[in-house]
Design a protein around this nucleic acid. Sequence first.
DNA 1: TTAGGGTTAG
Length: 477
Amino acid sequence: MSCGFSTRLFNICIASLCKASKLERAEAIIIDGIRLGYIPDVVTYNTLIAAYCRFVGVDAAYSVLFRMKEAGIKPNVISYNTLISGATRDCLPTRSLDLLEEMLQVGICPDAWSYNTLMHCFFKSGRPEEAYMIFLDMISRDVSPSSTTYNTIINGLCKTGNTGRLGQARRILKELGESGHAPNIITYTTVMKCCFRSGKFKQGLEIFTELKSKGYACDTFVYCTVISALSKLGRIREANAYIDEMERVGIGLDIVAYNTLINAYCKEGKLDIAFQLLNEIEKSGLQGDEYTHTILVDGLCKMGDIDAAIRHVRYMEMSGYGSSLVASNSLIHGLCKVGQVDSAITLFNRLKLKDSFTYSSLLHGLCKVRRYHTAFRIMLACVRDGIKVLTSARRAVLDGLRSSRFYREEKKLNCYVAWTNCHDNLFHVVVTMFGFAAEHLFLSLFCASWKHFAEYNMHLPINNGRFKSRGISSVFN
DNA sequence: TTAGGGTTAG
């Protein structure tokens, strides 16, 4: 008994070292502990696995699993769930699936936690159809979905663009409650964020009112979501009121909350307060991240202080934040806005990575100063790279080419765009066919009982029989 | 000792 108590204390000590990322020290303590008679148990090793996943990587964590077995300690479901979580953090769906396979092979039954994490991994990797198949496997093995399962699916489908019936977000929440799976604060935050993401601000704010009226305690996630949405809408006074409320109810500010605040002040044009907050972050022992500085760069661009924005991007590069694509996009947009299109082109050419924002901003800037032929060349490169620009940017280039009598270029560009659209349509048909599965899940999720749903899905062609051990990987590869 | 929700740009 006393030995068990000592092991608990020993594990607490290891956990605190791991939390502070002092892995070498934790390992040394384990060796010293063994000499003194403290025998590490499965909790000790699981703590170490979690820390290696967080601070080093899943491969290093997996080697701990190996050492654990060598020491005669059998890994349990938490050991594997932790590794799957590590693979998810690094966005490695194949790896997480292999770990599930290994669990089954060594006779450890995956639980809801394992499946939820695995589904999240596939959603995070932009593969909702496979996440759906994981869900089917979960059902076929009689593992009951939990509230986390619902939240993972709602969030995953929303982030991968399958918003489905989210147009009726409040009804979804009501149906979830009626089905006996009461939504929790995470469900509310997820659905609210989905509304904001799809531009349904009114509905999102109604959900916020609803969760407050139902007595849910708002946490920093809820406040950040709402404050950010209000900032985007330009409703700064209300955003400020919630910032005050957050402080009043004693919610401490982490880096994401600080970034949200800085963004609100930038949107209001109060750059001085935004920079004061940056100092406050550093004084409080936190550290600004890529988001913090990107928000500041964008704020400076929006205020027309391009020189300061350029200086801040240089500061970011020198301070090890890397070159943020979002910050560069803000800068390109800002340079075009103040008429420095050549500088925008120089920056554009320097970028190794470009996206739709980069191209759209520069194309708009070029059209604004009637440099349609340059815009034509850049847009050709963009189409060839398979990047889609805003419809307004494409329209501006085509209209400009026609008005400047560059008919041959206009025709060529139109051909390219039509060809790409044709491919997109074909792709859309394929995606829709597979997407049926995800959509079906979504409809069933809120309309039918889980049991009925699972039985029904057993007859779907996409689920020809249950997944079997070793069979599951072959479905995905 | 393990999972799900929050912050940036056109």
